[in-house]
């Protein structure tokens, strides 16, 4: 699915968890999730790595997060960049992340 233009994320952007959003490991259900006001988003492996790489401390740009993930997974940067931008656009549209 193509994200609407206004949700698209540039490599110079920085993203952070929206107010009231937290990353949590659910030991009963055995997955990671983002929790927000009255909401739960279950994260697959890719989404979890994207959230960790883009919202950690110290803050990084999207470009820096992509570089780090490309190195970590020894994968082509263009592929990683596409995944990251798709995940971020979706999470911004749903209100879990903000720029």
């Amino acid at each position: 699915m193509t994200a609407p233009q206004e949700m698209s994320v540039g490599e110079d952007d920085r993203v952070r968890l929206a107010p009231g959003v937290m990353l949590r490991q659910d030991r009963v259900r055995n997955h990671w999730q983002l929790l927000g006001p009255e909401r739960v988003l279950i994260l697959d492996e890719v989404a979890l790595e994207v959230v960790r790489a883009t919202t950690g401390q110290p803050p990084v740009t999207v470009a820096e997060a992509i570089d780090a993930l490309a190195a970590q997974f020894d994968a082509p940067r263009t592929e990683i960049a596409a995944d990251v931008r798709e995940v971020l656009a979706d999470m911004i549209a749903k209100g879990f992340l903000t720029r």
Binding site: P4, E6, M7, G36, P37, E38, R39, I92, A93, K94, G95
Partner: peptide, 8 residues
């Protein structure tokens, strides 16, 4: 409102 305000 998409991306600005979650609407339930």
């Amino acid at each position: 409102l998409k991306g600005r305000l979650v609407v339930d």
